[in-house]
Structures are given as C-alpha cells and as structure tokens.
Write a protein that binds this DNA or RNA. Structure first.
Length: 271
DNA sequence: AAGTCTCCCTGAGTGC
DNA sequence: TGCACTCAGGGAGACT
C-alpha cells in the first residue's frame, strides 16, 4: 500500500533512470483505470524528453522539457518501474513507454485503484495538487495540525488520513504515528492539548523519515522503482500486529474499525 | 458545511 | 482439492 515513504522511494529510484530520457513509444491497455488516459496524449508525448520527477503527497508528476506532464497515483497495488525492454510483459500492465536506451518504463496495477493522466501543461498537474492537498508532512509549519484541526469533531485517525490536512499519510503510517505519539486513534481532535498536537506532528515526521530510510513497507505488492521491496514492515509497532504483544508494554495490540479503515493500537500505551 | 458512507478492484487467506 | 466467502484500502462522489 504505497503511502508517502513508498512513493518517495519510487521517485528516488526512477529519477536517475528517467531524467533526460526520450519517449520513443507509448502503450496503454484497454482495462479502465480510475482516470481515463486520452488516446491523443500518446501522439503528443512521442519524442518528448523527461526533465524532472516530483512527488506531492502520494502523487507522482513527471515533467517533460516541452512542458507536458504525466501524473500517476499508485492506488493500492500500483508499481512504477524501469526495466530492460527485453523483459516479458507481466499481467496487469496498464501503461508502458519505450525509452531511447532500450529500457521500458512500466505502470502495473493489479487492483486498478491507481491512475495515469496526461497534462498538456504539466505544471498544472502540480498546481492542482497544491490546491487540493494539505502541506507535505516532512516540513510542516510548526503548529500546523493544531491550527487546522483543533476545532474538528473528528477522531485523530480521520484527521491524519485526510489528505487536505496533511498529504501523504495513509493507514499504516497514521497508526504508527499515533503509537509513536502515545495518542489513542479514537481521541477527538478538539480534545487535544497544544503539547499533544506538537507530539503528534513530530511523531508523523519521525515515522515517515524512518520509513523512507528503510525504502518503505512492503505489505503485499509494493516494490520501489528498481523492483526492490521495502524493509520498514519489519519495524512496524502496531500496524498488522493485532493480538501480538505491544513491543513497549506487552499488552495485546487491538484492532478497531475507525474512520472507515482498520486501525491498530495499544490500548495501554495510547490514551 | 462538515463528516460519513459506498464504490471501485483482484489476490490472498480462511473455513468447510 | 475445490469452492464460496471475506478482507485489504485511496480517493471520488453521494449522502446525511
């Protein structure tokens, strides 16, 4: 399940493999993804040269030197990789581009929750994300969470998952950050003290930084841009550990359905 | 307006 | 072994 650390890893892996490369041919499958890939986009992108790769929240935007852009979302099972063109095409491949060095840039997505979009003006793809997403959690303005959520009637889990509040946190890292901050996921946002907001904000940043350093978490299908799996799943404190002893106090980890997602926490450590 | 629910999708896991 | 069933969840849009 790609969240910010996984998407960041993909972008870092792809950047040296794609930057400066020219697109020779583009193919897209008939299976419908969450967004329609316009057929005319292929004609426009042929011979375009890739200039830069960007991550915003869980989104990836690739800009070409003529201003065009391609925007990806990995959804649940999306995989964006660059492989030698001689490698056989896998199943669930939805979009792929032939590069000028004989490699192929591939987007594979088993569950098709992901998306590929073409933009005549790639900067607009980024601007649109800036309009609808909250700030990046790795450099949040201090006091941001309190400023935007202190009046909210929602629980903390819902606040962390809301991409308009902070961009890039998903189910795994929301649970991990709440454990790190020793805050109960069902706590109402409006009940938090300033010091608790600060603790939560620091915890989010710490958890994400550590996860990026470990190349993210591979729960089922995630792989980085070079096809490598992540390692952070070995360091998760609560996510996926229902019934197992809390690594801090030994009480069993509880799982509860919250904000539409299964939520894991230690009822003893997180009040 | 703010918050919650439903839907999309497929493979893995479970129980009989 | 085979089959039916459940579960996983990001984001869009419908609904309360």
């Amino acid at each position: 399940m790609p969240e910010l650390p996984e998407v960041e890893t993909v972008v870092r892996d792809l950047r040296p493999q794609l930057t400066g490369r020219r697109l020779i041919a583009i193919h897209s499958s008939k299976a419908q993804l969450r967004r329609h890939w316009p057929i005319r986009a292929i004609r426009h992108l042929i011979q375009a040269r890739i200039a830069s790769l960007h991550r915003r929240g869980k989104w990836i935007v690739v800009l070409c030197d003529d201003g065009q852009g391609i925007r990806f979302h990995l959804g649940m099972t999306g995989q964006l990789t660059v492989v030698p063109g001689s490698e056989p095409l896998p199943d669930h491949l939805h979009w792929w581009a032939e590069l000028d060095n004989g490699y192929q840039w591939r987007f594979r997505d088993i569950r098709r929750f992901g998306s590929v979009e073409w933009f005549a003006h790639g900067q607009e793809a980024l601007a649109e994300l800036d309009r609808k997403l909250g700030p990046e959690p790795l450099n949040l303005p201090s006091g941001h969470l309190k400023a935007v959520a202190a009046q909210s009637q929602r629980c903390l889990k819902a606040v962390l998952l809301d991409q308009t509040i902070i961009a890039g946190v998903g189910n795994i890292y929301a649970d991990e950050a709440l454990f790190e901050a020793a805050l109960h996921p069902a706590r109402l946002a409006r009940s938090l003290q300033t010091s608790e907001w600060d603790r939560l904000q620091r915890a989010v940043r710490r958890v994400l930084r550590r996860a990026i350093a470990a190349r993210g978490s591979t729960i089922r299908n995630y792989v980085g841009g070079s096809g490598l799996q992540g390692r952070y799943q070995q360091r998760l404190n609560v996510y996926g550990r229902e019934g197992l002893p809390c690594l801090h106090c030994g009480h069993p980890i509880v799982r509860q359905y919250l904000a539409g997602r299964s939520t894991h926490y230690c009822a003893y450590c997180q009040r």
